[in-house]
Design a binder for these strands. Structure first.
Lengths: 348, 348
DNA sequence: TTGAAAGCGCTAACAT
DNA sequence: ATGTTAGCGCTTTCAA
């Protein structure tokens, strides 16, 4: 077996030797701790640079009994979580922690994603997509501080950061009511805590505003919007305002309607959910209930860090943020007169 | 400072003690190595389970001088790379490695993403989105085996796995030619290695097929498609076939056209690039040149692992895969007669 | 301001 | 089949 042609990774020892100082001195310099003389500092830094030295985070964390690592488990298939990742990096960095990602993908369960995080011994875990029941989450939380984003976990005191569904629906339906709409339809997200909360919030807000509320079953896919549109077209029963589960479904629904000659927002107003990159694209231009990703991420990291730094702290319960409504081009005043969709293509 | 109320993480030592065996025996059992008796095995496993033991990957890798970690640097803003991640997890797992992700996001440069990976001491780095020049990549490769996905790096022998742009454009333009199109337009992706390769491939394929080729400047955003469509509409100069840079741009372009009363594919055929989840959505139903994500990921992991296991191996150059054309609903036979787009909305 | 020594959790080579 | 010992790269007392 031949020797590695590649120069083996430089270690602190090498840097110290090369600079002619002890390892501990070199260590202090590298971590920018006070102590070493300016001259020693310079020599060490020079050597480190010359050798391309980079501290080994494993050894480092092993020695200090802390990883300063925040684990984040997310699902590649949920665009909203991708947005969240961006905010988490920023917040973690600001708090002096590193973020380590573990993805849930088809073929890699939440189970595995979380197990990996535990293997890294991250100081806390932030779960963006947990479908786990309360008990499992609580058990996990007894091993490492856990913060959930987005999802309510009833009957527990787990750390949760989420956006108020009730407030979101109040904003959305309030906007529609103001535009003169009297009947609203929600295409829901199927089963799961968030869809169910959102559904309930929809009903509650409609009742409070005196709007007639209808709910149609859907799921978390874009297809659900597409199918709902076709169902409505087939039934010839098209409400003046629709709130699909999220932006993806809303976009698909709009597309189906547009192709069928139903005009948005002239005939039907549509409000999405998540204010995702998709909704922001100018050709989509979707009115949407936005979660404040930045704030969500900051709060989650804040909670995590708090529990890491004071390990006596128990889980702190929910932080509920307010959403905002971003009014774009898919909502408008209700038009009198009936809708006469044309089947088939939309051009004369 | 109070004591941690949380039971401190169980260590191998604890498991061994609890099972009444030595650490090395416990280690063998945990790693499922031959040696320990069935009875000892059982005792250790039981203790491990009871204590919720999970090996510390840091300590493990430190001891074996290998992390069995494949680092992947990607960009959250590029949907194609998200798809790739899924494939990489699968391939890495199959090869007995773990995948560790490091994202490039607005506010976190490629620089930092890669530095983090080096800190983890991953055995090899797979770069999905490198914009680095050849020299920097070569220098990095001298520290740790590097495999690039997607991007050609001229004049080097770096490990690269990519899809042939030439073949992709041949497929796309061949399909269009067969449908009777005589003139094709490419909205390009601006500057960068991939856009430039793709542009050149477009021109080459058009020439070979005897098609009139036009190229319009764009960039890597969806907006570029939207804007291109409006430019064409304004100029009243709409070709019968268009190949935007990627699916996102294609979708935006189609949307702009549809709203203006230009029918797809009746008036204009459109082919996207990437066969992304977006293009697969039934309401988008976009004919698209697909890169084989699974194959791309497998090859990249294969190359990485090869160089990890035989560290004498030099970088192995390019692997170029063949794309395929997924024909969906946005391409059709060229129609005789001129296109008369209606400005404004699409319904009578 | 600097150095020596112990230890973080684990594996590996070598006893027994 | 099982235990002992040294060491992975780093930080951290503690002494000099």
């Amino acid at each position: 077996m031949g020797r590695d042609p590649r120069q083996s990774e430089a270690r602190l020892k090498d840097v110290a030797a090369s600079a002619g100082v002890s390892r501990s001195l070199a260590s202090l310099v590298i971590r920018n701790e006070p102590g070493p003389s300016a001259e020693a500092r310079e020599r060490v830094l020079e050597a480190a640079h010359r050798l391309g030295y980079r501290p080994d985070t494993r050894a480092q964390s092993l020695a200090v009994l802390r990883t300063r690592l925040l684990g984040a488990a997310f699902d590649t298939r949920r665009p909203f979580q991708i947005d969240l990742i961006e905010g988490l990096y920023e917040a973690a960095t600001a708090a002096g922690y590193e973020l380590v990602l573990s993805a849930q993908v088809p073929g890699r369960s939440e189970e595995e994603a979380i197990a990996t995080l535990l293997g890294y011994r991250c100081d806390a875990a932030i779960l963006l997509s947990s479908g786990w029941p309360a008990e499992r989450l609580e058990e996990l939380d007894s091993r490492v501080p856990v913060v959930l984003i987005g999802r309510r976990v009833p009957k527990t005191n787990l750390d949760v950061v989420r956006t108020s569904e009730a407030a979101g629906m109040r904003l959305a339906l309030g906007h529609l009511a103001q535009l003169g709409h009297r009947e609203v339809l929600h295409i829901d997200g199927g089963s799961g805590q968030i869809p169910s909360d959102r559904r309930r919030a929809f009903r509650g807000a409609a009742r409070a505003l005196g709007l007639a509320a209808r709910v149609q079953r859907g799921d978390r896919t874009a297809e659900a919007g597409w199918e709902a549109a076709h169902r409505l077209l087939a039934a010839g029963d098209i409400p003046t305002a629709i709130i699909p589960y999220h932006d993806m479904a809303a976009t698909a629904l709009i597309d189906a309607f547009t192709r069928a000659g139903v005009r948005i927002p002239d005939d039907v107003s549509v409000i999405g959910y998540d204010n995702s990159q998709l909704s922001q694209m100018s050709h989509v231009n979707l009115t949407s209930v936005g979660q404040d990703v930045h704030h969500l991420a900051t709060q989650a990291v804040g909670k995590a860090v708090q529990r890491v730094e004071d390990r006596n702290l128990p889980a702190g319960g929910e932080v509920v943020l307010s959403p905002s409504l971003i009014v774009r081009g898919t909502t408008g005043p209700v038009r009198s007169g009936s809708i006469a969709p044309k089947p088939g293509r939309s051009v004369p």
